[in-house]
Nucleic acid binder design. Structure first.
Ligand SMILES: [Mn+2]
Ligand SMILES: [Mn+2]
Ligand SMILES: [Zn+2]
Ligand SMILES: [Zn+2]
Lengths: 134, 134
DNA sequence: CCCTTTATTTAGACTTAGTTTAAATTTAGA
DNA sequence: TCTAAATTTAAACTAAGTCTAAATAAAGGG
């Protein structure tokens, strides 16, 4: 059996996602490839992101905006986005199990996945906002 | 001051969203207008949905898929989507307050909004799936 | 009422994010 | 080395929605 899979292009893209801490979009990734002097076709970036997602090496996030973001943190976690500056941060606090059981009881579903997005104002924005007001 | 606002076209669209229980997309709404023999321009449907959302008469949901869905239930609630048949149901169970406080403590954000999407298998799909297996 | 101003609707062009197609290139492995 | 399968590529295409500019409709002062 062939187990190449992780071609040069895919590796470049995986590295960018792994090293990023800002949950980059496909377009961010294209920009960063250009900055590195690497030339990867537009369609290859999308194909690679799909491949890496299917392989479970990265995960696709649909948060604010139209463009998907990508995350190489595979531990179970959620996200919070600042409505003032747009930054996306991790939410590692676990979802209360008994709350999930309650939702299953309410809806009759058996839950297999949670996609939770919180919105709010980050510490930095609260600080600079206060400064601006004073 | 003028307070027309709710024009004939906007009212038609508000009624469709209000009477629907399936969180319809813009395209669903266009289909239902056609079924009613009503003719509303494509752009007007989108303009109206934005207007109604801005007025707080309906809310826009970004769940699975590319198209926004619309909901006239304005009470604070969340959604769950069946990964087998695609139906979208309401989740009325409240978010645990102390959990939100925990997330605020973890992230440093002050949370202003929660957009929670659960995925799972609905009761009907579990039943028919069991039948298929037997 | 009549006229002017403002709001709304409309058709169609345009945009953004992503997918598909078909040819060219690369790689695997017999 | 040679062939078949996998991957990359450029460019066409799609889906969902926005924008533009003209046409229509409503408002409100006189
Ligand atoms: Mn993350
Ligand atoms: Mn709902
Ligand atoms: Zn911020
Ligand atoms: Zn179902």
């Amino acid at each position: 059996m062939s187990r190449i899979g992780l071609t040069a292009q895919r590796k470049l893209i995986l590295d960018i996602v792994s090293e990023a801490s800002d949950h980059p979009t496909a377009s961010d990734i294209i920009d960063r490839l250009k900055l590195q002097g690497q030339t990867v076709a537009y369609a290859t970036v999308y194909n690679s992101l799909r491949y890496l997602t299917d392989q479970g090496l990265i995960r696709e996030l649909k948060l604010e905006g139209d463009a998907s973001r990508y995350d190489a943190r595979m531990e179970d976690h959620q996200h919070i986005v600042c409505t003032s500056c747009g930054r996306v941060d991790e939410v590692m606090t676990e979802i209360p199990k008994d709350w999930l059981r309650q939702i299953e009881a309410e809806t009759g579903y058996s839950i297999t996945e949670e996609q939770l997005l919180f919105k709010g104002v980050c510490a930095e924005c609260r600080t600079s906002n206060n400064k601006a007001v004073q």
